[in-house]
Simulated assay, not measured.
Amino acid sequence: MTTTRLTRYDRSMLRLMNDRRGAAWYATAARRRLAVAAHITLTAAIGGLMTHLFLAEGEPLWTIAVMAVLLVPWMVATGVINSATRGLLELRERALDERQSAERSRVLARAHRATTLLLATAVLGLLVAGMADGHAPKAYAGPLLIAVLVVHWLMPLWVAGLHAQDEPSEDDALGTGPLGR
């Protein structure tokens, strides 16, 4: 950590992000991948419902209700990923040690590259659709740009969740694992 003193908020967030009570949810790489996959799926579902809400004509009440219901597991999945990464993206820079700060930089760089490819694909898709139809599909440009913005916002969380490492077991920490005997 840096020499800057941590505020009360920093200390409480550090405690929250290092709380191991929910560790069973992200203890293995498979569980972390499942949490990221669930988060991506829920994000896509909520985004699809939002698109439907704005593009479809009719009664939007059911769409809003389903989005509200899906928001609860989306928040749980977000918390699982944040806990798995020990708050890598949620903590302020001054609350991170040097290793975590370097990992945050790597995660942000990977996420930036992935988002750049996604944005290029979205632009290319709109251009190809516009050339095939003779005009740009204006109705879908807004929702597509919003979707890319949401992915840009969430990509670091997904990348961090996918690249989080397993916690060392107690035997490994004590040096009494299979190789330490």
Rank of each mutant, 00 (worst) to 15 (best):
residue 49 L to A: 01
residue 50 M to Y: 05
residue 50 M to V: 07
residue 50 M to S: 08
residue 50 M to N: 06
residue 50 M to E: 13
residue 51 T to D: 00
residue 51 T to I: 00
residue 51 T to E: 06
residue 51 T to W: 08
residue 51 T to C: 04
residue 52 H to W: 07
residue 52 H to N: 03
residue 52 H to K: 01
residue 52 H to L: 13
residue 52 H to S: 07
residue 52 H to M: 12
residue 53 L to M: 11
residue 53 L to K: 02
residue 53 L to S: 02
residue 53 L to N: 08
residue 53 L to W: 11
residue 53 L to R: 05
residue 54 F to K: 00
residue 54 F to A: 11
residue 54 F to S: 07
residue 54 F to Y: 12
residue 54 F to V: 14
residue 54 F to P: 00
residue 55 L to Y: 00
residue 55 L to V: 12
residue 55 L to I: 11
residue 55 L to K: 00
residue 55 L to S: 02
residue 56 A to N: 12
residue 56 A to P: 00
residue 56 A to W: 08
residue 56 A to M: 06
residue 56 A to L: 07
residue 56 A to E: 13
residue 56 A to F: 08
residue 56 A to T: 08
residue 56 A to Y: 06
residue 57 E to N: 02
residue 57 E to W: 03
residue 57 E to V: 10
residue 58 G to V: 05
residue 58 G to A: 08
residue 58 G to R: 04
residue 58 G to F: 07
residue 58 G to H: 04
residue 59 E to R: 15
residue 60 P to L: 01
residue 61 L to Q: 07
residue 61 L to W: 11
residue 61 L to E: 10
residue 62 W to I: 04
residue 62 W to E: 01
residue 62 W to D: 04
residue 62 W to Q: 02
residue 62 W to Y: 02
residue 62 W to H: 07
residue 62 W to S: 10
residue 62 W to L: 11
residue 63 T to Q: 05
residue 63 T to S: 13
residue 63 T to H: 06
residue 63 T to L: 14
residue 63 T to V: 15
residue 64 I to L: 15
residue 64 I to S: 08
residue 64 I to W: 14
residue 65 A to H: 02
residue 65 A to W: 04
residue 65 A to D: 01
residue 65 A to F: 03
residue 65 A to S: 03
residue 66 V to E: 02
residue 66 V to H: 05
residue 66 V to R: 02
residue 66 V to C: 07
residue 66 V to I: 15
residue 67 M to L: 09
residue 67 M to I: 15
residue 67 M to C: 12
residue 67 M to R: 06
residue 68 A to K: 07
residue 68 A to P: 09
residue 68 A to C: 10
residue 68 A to H: 05
residue 69 V to D: 01
residue 69 V to N: 02
residue 69 V to F: 15
residue 70 L to H: 05
residue 70 L to A: 10
residue 70 L to W: 04
residue 70 L to G: 03
residue 71 L to D: 10
residue 71 L to W: 13
residue 71 L to M: 14
residue 71 L to T: 13
residue 71 L to E: 13
residue 72 V to T: 14
residue 72 V to A: 15
residue 73 P to I: 11
residue 73 P to A: 09
residue 73 P to Q: 05
residue 73 P to G: 09
residue 74 W to G: 04
residue 74 W to S: 10
residue 74 W to F: 15
residue 74 W to H: 14
residue 74 W to A: 14
residue 75 M to Q: 11
residue 75 M to E: 14
residue 75 M to V: 15
residue 75 M to F: 14
residue 76 V to K: 11
residue 76 V to S: 01
residue 77 A to T: 15
residue 77 A to P: 11
residue 77 A to W: 05
residue 77 A to Q: 12
residue 78 T to Y: 15
residue 78 T to M: 10
residue 78 T to W: 13
residue 78 T to V: 08
